[in-house]
């Protein structure tokens, strides 16, 4: 966790933005958020209802079953007037509707992948390929510095285009997490309109 002196109070005129940290279960999303956040990553719950027929043993209760889905987030005050929130995606793939909520208004997304279990990040990559308004990059969280493949092979395995930045990172390391976000923001600049003429 990063502690910064002016972090606790945001100005009454502050605005906010966000970046989404996606990836499979155990890829290091929470660790990544913790490396950058000035608050301890917190978990919040979204309430959803599911049709009761999926729960035969509870058929006696006709009401819908409510399930909570946890997602965690952290915050960085980039300046006194601008707060950046980092949201980790919930692990379970069946909560795609929550991803839509997470990504709405986001600057972009970092898809974290554990190189030993690369396939776990495929659903996230597929999701962001279908959300053209949110640029994404892929960061391989190299647990203990182990990258068993060449980056080009990883790119081929992920079937991502040559334009999508692919890098390695250490989710536990603040400098590495900052660098990863920086790469995303630089990449997002290619999608933004031209700089204002001022």
């Amino acid at each position: 966790m990063v502690s910064r002196p002016s972090s606790t109070e945001l100005s009454p005129t502050a605005i906010s933005t966000k970046i989404v940290i996606a990836g499979g279960f155990g890829a290091g999303k929470t660790t990544f958020v913790r490396s950058i956040s000035e608050i301890e990553p917190v978990t919040t719950e979204a309430l959803m209802t599911e049709a009761s027929q999926d729960f035969d043993d509870l058929a006696a209760t006709p009401e819908k079953i409510t399930t909570t889905v946890a997602m965690d987030f952290g915050r960085v005050s980039l300046d006194q007037e601008l707060a950046l929130y980092l949201f980790g995606t919930p692990g379970q793939d069946r909560f795609w509707f929550l991803w839509d909520d997470l990504i709405r208004g986001a600057l972009g997304a970092v898809v974290l992948a554990d190189p030993r279990r690369l396939a776990d990040c495929f659903p996230a990559v597929e999701y962001f390929e279908n959300v053209p308004e949110a640029p994404f990059i892929v960061a391989l969280n190299c647990f203990d510095g182990i990258l068993p493949f060449e980056l080009d092979d990883v790119r081929a395995a992920l079937a991502i285009g040559p334009e999508v930045p692919l890098l390695t990172c250490d989710a536990r390391d603040t400098a590495s997490a900052v660098y990863t976000l920086t790469e995303l923001v630089r990449y997002a600049m290619n999608f933004a309109g031209p700089p204002a003429l001022v």
Binding site: L78, D79, L84, D173, T174, V178, T182, M189, P195, A196
Partner: peptide
């Protein structure tokens, strides 16, 4: 906030994070 200016501002902010 124009998107490019916002992204520049985010970059500047990220650079101030101590590590």
């Amino acid at each position: 906030v124009p998107e490019h200016m916002l992204l520049e501002r985010v970059l500047r902010g990220l650079q101030t994070i101590k590590h």
